[in-house]
Structure formats: C-alpha cells, structure tokens
Amino acid sequence: MLQKTNFAALGDLEHEHVPSHSVFGFWLYLMTDCVLFASLFAAFAVLAHQFAGGPTGKDLFDIPGVAMETAVLLLSSITYGFAMLGAHKRKSGVVLGWLAVTFVLGATFLWFELNEFSHLLAEGAGPSRSAFLSSFFTLVATHGLHVTVGLIWMVVLAVQIIIKPELSEREITRLSCLSLFWHFLDIVWICVFTFVYLGSVL
C-alpha cells in the first residue's frame, strides 16, 4: 500500500514539473533573442558615427518624448505584474482587466514609435540616408515587432480566458511565459533608450 502511495506521489510530482519544463524552454528562446539584440546593438555601436553627411542623433531625437515612451512601456510591465498576481489567485476577471490595461499601454508605446518613424521619414531621415539611421531603424523596429507579437499574444490569451474562465496550470504557464517575454522587452528598451538615444545626444 505504501509503495502504491509513493508511486502516486511520484506521478503527481512529475505532473507538477511539466509547466516548469515549458518555462525553461521559453527561457532558452529568450537567450536566442538576447543574441539577436546583442548583434543589433553591436552593429549600431560600429555604425553610430557613420552619418554620411546626414543628420545625427542630436539633430533628430526628441529625448523628452522618448522618455515618455519609455515610461509607458515600463508602466505596462507593472500592470502585467498585477495580472500575474490575479492569475496566481485564480481570478480571471482581474487578469483580464490588467491585461486590457497592459495592452493599451503597449499599443500606446507602439503609437509613439510609429509616430517617431513617420516624423523621421518626413524629414528625409529614413533608413537609407546613412549607416547610422539604417542601424537605428533596424534595432528599434525589431524591438517594435517584438512588442507587436507580444500584444497579439496577449489578445490570444485574453480570448482563451474569456472562453474558459477557470485558470488551470496550463493557462498560468502561458501567462508566465508572456510575462517573461514582456519584461525582457522592457529590459531591451532600457538599453535602447540609454545606449541609442541618450548615447547619441550626449
């Protein structure tokens, strides 16, 4: 009887470890993303002073506007944290509410970014103007693409929760993976703001 109980306990323990395998696998994916962004930062570092007679970062960048953009993205990281607190308490309504707030903040960040790109293109400072601008657009647009993927992912998870309000371990694992992804994007953007924007105007 004791042996059967031990086997049952072992089975339960293995089942509990399944979500952690998923999270570990997602950590591996994030490591590949780290390599991607590290390569883009390295390319920017090499090309940051190749202006080809065109405008420099000091001529183009609106630091107060970018600081506000940064604050919006950092705030979205906090609101997603509230969504995770609700998830661990199995409160689907709380999760949906904070996901909605996070989505709005993320979409606002993208609006800032697209508005900046539009302004630069209108001034003739597109990616083909110089190596500096090519590396800038590539790095910032890659981050923006990741944010867009995160927002789509957020909508998919919200729809799944609406359809099935009972939060299982699988749903919490999916929310945790998106949490890792979203916080990772915040860290990358802090590096962009510091290294690309501030570093180009100082």
Rank of each mutant, 00 (worst) to 15 (best):
Leu2His: 09
Thr5Val: 07
Phe7Gly: 00
Ala8Tyr: 13
Ala9Ser: 11
Leu10Asn: 10
Asp12Met: 12
Glu16Cys: 10
Val18Lys: 10
Pro19Gln: 09
Pro19Thr: 10
Pro19Tyr: 04
Ser20Lys: 13
Ser20Trp: 15
Val23Thr: 14
Val23Arg: 13
Leu30Met: 12
Met31Thr: 05
Phe37Cys: 04
Ala38Val: 04
Ala38Met: 06
Ala38Trp: 03
Ala38Gly: 10
Ser39Leu: 04
Phe44Asn: 02
Ala48Leu: 03
Ala48Asp: 02
His49Ala: 11
His49Gln: 10
Phe51Asn: 12
Gly53Tyr: 05
Gly54Lys: 06
Pro55Val: 11
Thr56Pro: 02
Lys58His: 05
Leu60Met: 15
Leu60Thr: 12
Leu60Cys: 13
Asp62Met: 08
Ala71Ile: 00
Val72Ile: 13
Leu74Phe: 03
Thr79Tyr: 05
Gly81Tyr: 10
Leu85Asn: 13
Gly86Trp: 07
Ala87Arg: 05
His88Leu: 09
His88Arg: 11
Arg90Gln: 15
Ser92Lys: 14
Ser92Gly: 14
Ser92Val: 14
Ser92Tyr: 15
Gly93Phe: 14
Val94Lys: 12
Trp98His: 15
Trp98Cys: 15
Val101Pro: 11
Thr102Pro: 13
Thr102Glu: 12
Gly106Thr: 10
Gly106Ser: 14
Ala107Thr: 14
Phe109Ala: 11
Phe109Ser: 04
Glu116Gly: 10
Ala122Thr: 05
Ala122Asn: 12
Ala125Phe: 08
Gly126Asn: 06
Pro127Ile: 05
Ser128Asp: 11
Ala131Leu: 13
Leu133Asn: 09
Leu139Phe: 07
Val140Lys: 02
Leu145Lys: 08
Val147Gln: 00
Val147Asn: 00
Val149Pro: 00
Val149Met: 01
Gly150Phe: 00
Leu151Trp: 03
Ile152Ser: 03
Ile152Cys: 06
Gln160Arg: 08
Ile161Lys: 03
Ile162Val: 15
Glu169Asn: 13
Arg170Asp: 11
Arg170Glu: 12
Glu171Ile: 11
Glu171Lys: 10
Ile172Ala: 08
Arg174Trp: 08
Leu175Arg: 02
Leu180Gly: 00
Phe181Met: 01
Phe181Asn: 04
His183Thr: 04
Phe184Gly: 01
Phe184Trp: 04
Leu185Asp: 01
Trp189Glu: 01
Ile190His: 00
Val192Pro: 00
Thr194Ala: 05
Val196Leu: 06
Gly199His: 07
Ser200Ala: 11
Val201Asn: 03
Leu202Val: 08
